[in-house]
Amino acid sequence: VETLESRNLKATFAVNGSVCELYPDACEAARDAGWDFMGHGFVQRPMHRVDDQKAAIAQTIEAISRFTGKPPRGWESPGLTETDETLDLLAEAGIEYVADWVLDEQPVTLKTRAGDIVSVPYTVEINDVVISA
């Protein structure tokens, strides 16, 4: 937080919804620094292993909204994982962008049954999944 603040930079905080309650000090520091909170699942579990994705997405959005006072605009699935339905469920829940698709250096519009969602540029080289996989 201090390093970014010293450079007048804001971060996007990919956070599991459960973290807002389990680690409030870390989340308060991010919120107070003006960081954007991005949904990262409710718990750290690949989306294809979540029994009810719709409920987990809603639970994550609710936890972040309750903690920050506003819903997250973006989403990065744990392990960058999705199912065929994940994007549709995210768009239906009001998520505007995702960071799961490592496919281009420019934003790309993806079609869902609820309208468009944007894939933001993201490289797997800066993701912890490379270290832990």
Rank of each mutant, 00 (worst) to 15 (best):
A114P: 01
Y122I: 07
L89V: 08
G74V: 10
G39E: 05
L103R: 12
E62V: 06
T86Y: 04
Q59F: 07
L90A: 04
I64P: 06
R45Y: 11
E76M: 14
G94Q: 00
E92A: 15
D52Y: 01
L80A: 09
D100S: 10
M47I: 11
D104P: 01
F67T: 08
G115E: 14
V50N: 00
A56S: 13
A56V: 10
A56L: 07
G74F: 11
E82Y: 04
G79Y: 10
V120M: 15
M47D: 03
S119A: 12
S65R: 06
F67P: 15
A93H: 08
D36V: 07
Q44L: 14
V98C: 02
T68P: 09
V98F: 02
A99T: 02
V43S: 03
Q44S: 12
W35A: 07
V130M: 12
D36A: 13
P46L: 05
I117N: 00
L89H: 01
L103G: 15
Y97P: 11
D104V: 01
Q53H: 05
M38P: 00
P121L: 04
H40L: 08
G115M: 03
Q44C: 11
Q59C: 05
V130T: 15
A29Q: 12
D32W: 06
E76Q: 14
T112A: 07
I64W: 01
P72D: 05
E96K: 14
D51N: 13
R66E: 15
L103Y: 09
D52S: 04
L110S: 06
R113F: 12
T123P: 00
E62C: 10
Q106C: 13
E62Q: 13
T86Q: 07
Q59P: 01
T83L: 12
E76Y: 05
E125W: 10
P78W: 09
S77M: 06
W101D: 08
I95S: 03
I61T: 02
D100I: 00
G79Q: 01
M47F: 04
A91C: 14
G74E: 06
Q53S: 11
G41F: 14
N127S: 13
T109L: 05
D32R: 13
F37K: 04
V120W: 11
V98T: 06
M38I: 14
R31E: 03
A63D: 09
L90P: 06
T86G: 07
I57V: 10
R31N: 02
D32H: 05
H40R: 10
P121M: 08
